[in-house]
Amino acid sequence: MRETSAPRRVRDRRRAWAPYLFISPWIIGFVAFTLGPLLFSAVMSFFDWPVIGTPRFVGIGNYAKMLTGDEQFWRSLGITLKFAVFFVPLNIVVALLLALLISRPVKGASVFRALFYLPAVVSSVAVSVIWGWILNSEYGLLNYLLSLFGIQGPRWLSDPTWAIVAIVIASLWGLGTMMLIFYTALKSIPRDIYEDALIAGASPVRQFFAITLPLITPSLLFNLITSTIGAMQQLSLVLLLTKGGPLKSTHFYGLYVYQNAFKHFKLGYASANAWFMFFVILALTALLFKSSAAWVFYENEVAAKPRKGGSS
């Protein structure tokens, strides 16, 4: 029999170190590959920093110009927020709905599962070609199909009011990832919980709101945050499908930053743009996280609360 007090102290000390050891890969990677470029871009944002030529210190000049003297900044910010408000809830609801559908015990569920997931693995180059084709207003497939029913379809890609809808339609096509995440979460819910509910005679709708939804709230939070970030940074599809047009109606913030950096060669200004967006997203994320205390349900906290009073 060993003495109990000494080893326990050793173990406690070890336990105090353990979490840092577990997260150390990320810390090392962050310091090695992210921190440097990040600081560099923060420094650049205070310079007039052309891609070719000598940088010149301008203090907060870039930020001041962006907030007060650049019409496009506000326009792009507005378009992006509009897109996010439109796209994020739609994306989540549809992904969740599909995940629920494919987790129902119907014949051929695995086929549908693959079907809905497929578009997510198509490379963005091909996605833009396919949708460019389908949505072409004069000779596109969609308007052709609509015309068979006597409907005159809108000019999806050349009408400024419809172009953003076209982007939403094409973006939603790739929601397989999010669906898969919901699906994994749904499948992780222990069967017996439902069995108990069934015995208690709960209706499917009640089951969903009382059991399913609370148990997948961690994944919901994840999808909410990552799809918000994705929406705010949307770039590749816009770049390939509409190039920001028509009439800059899809000139998203991501494209605005990209063009400032690579078309206008203003790296300093683009960095300031990027950092502004960083704080916007950070604020949104922080807000979502704060609110999550009220609606996200973590099992480990439930068990921990009486003893320690919460972990994060």
């Binding site: 979490p19 871009s41 970030i229 990209y258 683009a270 990027a274 994320t285």
Partner: peptide, 24 residues
Amino acid sequence: YSFRGKGVLFMILLGTMMIPWDVT
């Protein structure tokens, strides 16, 4: 685990998803 600095570190971790690649 709960450990000192966890909240801040986790926010930094999330923050790395928010940096657009164009500038870094």
